[in-house]
Design a protein around this nucleic acid. Structure first.
Length: 812
RNA sequence: GCCCGGAUGGUGGAAUUGGUAGACACGCCAGACUUAGGAUCUGGUGCCGCAAGGUGUGAAGGUUCAAAUCCUUUUCCGGGUACCA
């Protein structure tokens, strides 16, 4: 039989007390408390799924909660809110599986989540709770969409999209993994469709540049840099005839290799393909185009290294030499990057080389091993002897003078596909005035927002690429303000719409738009610490940065970046070291752990497992350690009669043993630094050492001052037990209203230190000395040590190294 | 393939950023108190060795008086990305 949580009654008591007394309320500008320095600490809000929380979810919440509780004690005005990201595919699929309307399942799931979070004693300001699916919230998501349209940043386009037949919707690039849907792992194909798009590419440069000023994990910044994928190079025209200036345009990052071009390759989908195809090659080209069309993206990548292509029969002319260059088509060239065509330099590009070798095309080296241009002179154009960098510069300049080239920058980043053919999302506030949806549109008036999602029975995808909303006739057909009839847009917004601005919404929980441009954002922004999973490194985190920059340009916010510091909590694996999942059967439910050990033990244990950002396996067996520690603390403070222990007496700090005074001050220093750096595992270990030492040094009488300070140090970690002890100590207010303990810097290290004595790099002895001892004195003492003399036997000291307070190293 | 990150006892992890490797815990061993203990307390615990001592941070080299930490090569694991010209 598992033991029952011995502290369950006091846990609920204090959780209630905190809520009743608004202990975690964040003061807005103008309110009492707002004159304090602000600290905005945000956890990525959860997706309330049907499964509830597993022990991995709270990891980040607990870590930030500890920091927030500490910051309040340090006198900060702390904003620590929580909300629900509930629109989108997962919620809808869950609803379809269960046969219940998504609004109902969402409501139920949120209740479960909230109950579970509250059980953990997390200090959220629930007065600011938000929900992306509530009309009062998505009213503003729709309003933002309108601003995007007005600024030309949201537009419609017929684009090749990631269409997932099984899900019946398009997916954003970051929702597609290995050619399969992130949700469910269904196959995804490319298909042209009318979509709403967000012009994130217009902000590519700023999104890239501003990364430098962010206190984010370097790996995440690098991921975003790669995703944006900026390439600097040039656009070069290979003319159709030796005398014309129009021709096949290519993008290259290596203009220095221009003289090594031996053939051209265009993508099978290239729009100017017909211009190159020679009559006797038509059949071969057509069949190649056809075969690559039938290949899905997945097949194309599966085929991987094996390149294929055919000669078109057509030629273009080299912009400098005027030589004829054959034009091929091959599907290793992508139609949606650059110009969809490349100049092939098989001598200096692996892919071109592979292709040239397969089809017997010329290979002409133009750069030697030292990175110097060779074979690159033609007439009065002399490029030989230049370095690669000089070559890029000079060749591009030459092309510019010939009107056959110019500098150009390309990005890998694509515009954000902003529509989904789904029911469970924010309706797009647009009315179409033409039947084919490709003509005039109007935006729905601000006073008519929110445009609410109709309550319908059939929210399942239609399968034909249309949103289920299209079947709701009475909703689709509408009139605009002039009385003209129109048809509402039936696509909805993607799941990442609501999460791209929610951090701003918490700053002012009122429903007024003015809330934004006012002091609230100026005061609270940006988020000081953002905690969440690394899986959002390029999706959510990039979209949120993009919108923030747009808001900045609109004058709605004063900060260009939403999240100053970012930390990813590591993955909590199952006991088997595998990812926790229902199918593996290795999911641990926090409710079970809490009912057995209590939430303080649970909090402490999750933090004690290791560094917050590291992936680590859950180990229920190890929980005993922190539970014992808390029990020892409890027994020290509270007697069997449930009153404050009689052992606790007034004993001035100066009467404590000297080494304990040192340890006491040292521990305050370390715990303080560790909390600020989110090194909760080592902070807990320091607290354990201190408590062990109290048991050793004060078996009969425990100094009251120690109990008070220790209780405060422990309070961010174990808030329930410490509140109880704090009140038993006679304090009327919560530990959250007390000041964080100070340490005496002069007492954080002892005067006596143990030196390590090494002979020829090996540890041979140790020696206790005063910290400030002179080197000469150390030398004399060391040379007299019997063990050291034994190791020196007759040898002379060649070198004597003394590192103050640390060690002595002798070379003999 | 490319780009990041990691590898320390039986286990989770420490290590003042080049200075006594293994803190703190779990587990294990021994003991104390107990009718009893899966409660509590005390001691021990990297490996080899009775000991002196040797050896040891994925592997192999190197720099240094001194390397888990810096450099080179390499293996394995995790994450990202994939023909981006």
């Amino acid at each position: 039989m598992p033991t029952q949580n011995p502290w369950s009654a006091l846990e609920s008591k204090w959780q209630q007390y905190w809520q009743d007394n608004k202990l975690f309320y964040a003061a807005n500008p103008g309110e009492e408390g707002a004159e304090k320095e602000k600290f905005y600490c945000l956890d990525m809000f959860p997706y309330p799924s049907g499964q509830g929380l597993h022990v991995g979810h709270p990891l980040g919440y607990i870590a930030t909660d500890i920091l927030c509780r500490y910051k309040r004690m340090r006198g900060f005005n702390v904003l620590h809110p929580m909300g629900w990201d509930a629109f989108g595919l997962p919620a809808e699929q869950y609803a379809i599986e269960q046969g219940i309307h998504p609004s109902e399942t969402t409501k139920k799931n949120i209740e479960t989540y909230k109950k579970q979070l509250n059980m953990l004693g997390l200090s959220f300001d629930w007065s600011r709770e938000l929900n992306t699916t509530s009309p009062s919230y998505y009213k503003w998501t729709q309003w933002i969409f309108k601003q995007m349209v007005k600024r030309g940043l949201a537009y419609q386009a017929e684009v090749a999209v990631n269409w997932c037949p099984a899900l019946g919707t398009v997916l954003a690039n970051d929702e597609v993994i290995d050619g399969k849907s992130e949700r469910g792992g269904h196959p995804v194909e490319r298909r042209p469709m009318r979509q709403w798009m967000m012009k994130i590419t217009e902000y590519a440069d700023r999104l890239l540049e501003d990364l430098d000023q962010l206190d984010w994990p370097e790996s995440t910044k690098e991921l975003q840099r790669n995703w944006i994928g900026k390439s600097i190079g040039g656009r070069v025209t290979f003319p159709f005839s030796p005398i014309t200036k129009d021709g096949l345009e290519v993008f290259t990052t290596r203009p220095d290799t221009l003289m090594g071009v031996t053939f051209m390759v265009i993508a099978p989908e290239h729009s100017e393909l017909e211009k190159f195809v020679h009559a006797d090659r038509k059949e071969a080209v057509d069949s190649y185009v056809e075969s690559s069309k039938s290949k899905s993206d997945l097949q194309r990548t599966d085929l991987n290294r094996d390149k294929s292509g055919v000669f078109t029969g057509g030629y273009v002319y080299h912009p400098i030499t005027g030589n004829k260059i054959p034009v091929w088509i091959a599907d290793y060239v992508l139609v949606n990057y650059g110009t969809g065509a490349i100049m092939a330099v098989p001598a200096h590009d692996e892919r071109d080389k592979e292709f040239a070798e397969k089809y017997g095309l010329d290979i002409k080296p133009v750069i030697n091993d030292q990175g110097i241009l060779i074979n690159s002179n033609w007439d009065d154009h002399e490029f030989n002897g230049l370095t690669v960098e000089e070559g890029k510069e000079k060749i591009l300049l030459t092309l510019e003078n010939l009107v056959l080239g110019k500098k150009e920058t390309q990005y890998r980043l694509r515009d954000w596909i902003f529509s989904r053919q789904r029911y469970w999302g924010e309706p797009i506030p647009v009315v179409h005035h033409t039947a084919d949806l490709s003509g005039k549109i109007s935006l729905i008036n601000d006073q008519d927002l929110p445009l609410t999602l109709p309550a319908v029975d059939s929210y399942k995808p239609t399968g034909g690429g249309e949103s289920p909303l299209a079947t709701v006739k009475e909703w689709v057909e509408c009139r605009d303000e002039t009385g003209k009839t129109g048809m509402r847009e039936t696509n909805t917004m993607p799941g990442s719409a609501g999460s791209s601005w929610y951090f701003l919404r918490y700053m002012d929980p009122s429903n007024e738009l003015e809330a934004w441009s006012n002091k609230a954002e100026e005061y609270w922004g940006p988020v000081d610490l953002y905690m969440g999973g690394a899986e959002h490194a390029v999706g959510h985190l990039l979209y949120a940065r993009f919108w923030t920059k747009v808001f900045f340009d609109m004058g709605l916010v004063k900060h260009k970046e939403p999240f100053k510091k970012l930390v990813h909590q590591g993955l909590m694996q199952g006991e088997d070291g595998e990812k926790m999942s229902k199918s593996r059967g290795n999911v641990v439910n926090p409710d079970d752990i809490i009912s057995e050990y209590g939430s303080d033990t649970f909090r402490l244990f999750e933090m004690f497992l290791g560094p917050i950002e590291k992936a680590k396996p859950w180990q229920t067996a190890n929980i005993e350690g922190v539970h014992r520690f808390l029990s020892r603390y409890w027994r020290l403070c509270v007697g069997d009669n449930n009153q404050l222990s009689e052992k606790i007496v007034d004993l001035p700090e100066l009467s404590w043993p000297k080494d304990f005074q040192i340890l006491f001050n040292k521990t305050i220093k370390q715990v303080t630094g560790d909390i600020e750096g989110l090194r909760h595992n080592t902070a807990i270990s320091a607290l354990m050492i201190l408590l062990n030492e109290v048991y050793a040094k004060f078996p009969d009488r425990v100094p009251r001052k120690f109990v008070e300070d220790f209780t405060l140090l422990l309070s961010p970690y174990a808030p329930h037990l410490t509140e109880e002890v704090w009140s038993k100590l006679g304090f009327g207010l919560s530990t959250q209203r007390a000041s964080w303990p100070e340490f005496d810097p002069s007492k954080t290290q002892s005067d006596e230190v143990q030196l390590a004595i090494q002979v020829n790099g090996k540890l041979r002895d140790t020696l206790w000395v005063s910290r400030e001892i002179a080197e000469e004195e150390v030398r004399a003492l060391v040379l007299e040590l019997p063990k050291i003399q034994k190791w020196m036997e007759g040898k002379a000291v060649r070198k004597f190294i003394y590192v103050k307070g640390k060690l002595v190293s002798l070379v003999v």
